[in-house]
Lab assay of single mutants.
Amino acid sequence: MEVRTIKVFTTVDNINLHTQVVDMSMTYGQQFGPTYLDGADVTKIKPHNSHEGKTFYVLPNDDTLRVEAFEYYHTTDPSFLGRYMSALNHTKKWKYPQVNGLTSIKWADNNCYLATALLTLQQIELKFNPPALQDAYYRARAGEAANFCALILAYCNKTVGELGDVRETMSYLFQHANLDSCKRVLNVVCKTCGQQQTTLKGVEAVMYMGTLSYEQFKKGVQIPCTCGKQATKYLVQQESPFVMMSAPPAQYELKHGTFTCASEYTGNYQCGHYKHITSKETLYCIDGALLTKSSEYKGPITDVFYKENSYTTTIK
């Protein structure tokens, strides 16, 4: 009895394709271990004539594949690729409408935090270190965002349907971005203890939790000093293409032309909904596939993004 075979390709990165001759009487799992086709788990399936010449994702289970996976995804987590594939199996079914010149995501599976993050990423200057993220990001900007969303979920250790947080998501993504040249110098002034300067680099240099107003941050924000008295913390120097200011959701007025974009969060910790506000020729609110415009805006804002380049204080 002759062994019926077909020729397929296996890959971990969709760049390096490895030619395989597979036995049609055995499952993919018996031949390769966990195997995925377009995100779908085909591990328990036997090869079919229609699979001839198709590319299958496999887990990096030998040295060659491990090197290829690390170079593309910059992670050695053995569960990463499987999590990416199972997320992709959902995100490829989502709709990605162009809204006001940006790629958004039609609401499904509690994905409003991903839509808000995706919209924000198209408006701030950011370059990702893992080629996987950078490639998928370019495709997302062009309207094909399924891979990018699935990668975000995998890097953030999230599953489809789980509630997510924009600030946490951005923080994970910033860790995989090139923020080497970003720098922030802060000064804390206390009447009792004097003053202390701190220099922050990388992710810490672009994120701040405690106030939404970048102007206020430049002037000074009140913080408790270690001595128990009130101290003032203010920005001395900022070198970065953008800054992200966050605070627990509270009524906040966004003035046209003073910011790049913002995240609105309605609801409580267990259950809520994100919308995205962007400042173009007027203010726009993007909620999944829905767009509304207004000249002014007041609502429960939790993150505001500002364009920056270089700032030095005039406070002496």
Rank of each mutant, 00 (worst) to 15 (best):
G161A: 06
G272C: 00
Y269H: 15
M170Q: 03
Y297A: 10
Q230M: 15
V21L: 13
Y172F: 12
K127I: 11
L126T: 06
S171R: 15
S246Y: 05
S240C: 01
T278R: 04
I301N: 05
V304C: 00
Q238N: 01
Q98G: 08
T64S: 11
N61W: 11
K307H: 11
L118K: 03
T226F: 09
T35S: 13
L186Y: 13
R167A: 01
F80E: 08
Y208I: 00
T292G: 06
A146M: 04
T258N: 07
R184S: 12
E215C: 05
K54T: 13
K54Y: 13
H51S: 03
Y306Q: 00
F305K: 10
D77K: 01
G143I: 05
V3N: 13
S86F: 05
C261R: 01
L59E: 14
K201M: 10
E253K: 13
T292L: 07
P78C: 09
K158H: 01
E281D: 13
A250W: 06
F70T: 06
A250L: 07
L235V: 09
A115E: 06
L119H: 14
C261D: 00
S50A: 13
F242Y: 00
Q238P: 02
V236C: 09
F70D: 07
P224I: 12
G220D: 02
L126F: 15
P78F: 06
E144N: 12
V188D: 04
V304S: 04
K298E: 14
A177W: 00
Y57H: 14
N16I: 00
N157F: 07
T278I: 08
Y137P: 07
E239T: 10
K280H: 08
A205E: 00
W94K: 02
V166Y: 10
L153N: 00
V304D: 00
T103G: 01
S79T: 13
N110M: 04
F242P: 00
Y234S: 05
A40F: 11
M245L: 04
M207V: 07
Q20V: 12
L88H: 00
K201I: 09
C285L: 12
E253R: 08
F174T: 00
I277F: 07
Y36S: 04
V58H: 08
K307Y: 12
T302F: 00
D287S: 00
Y208Q: 00
V42G: 02
D135T: 08
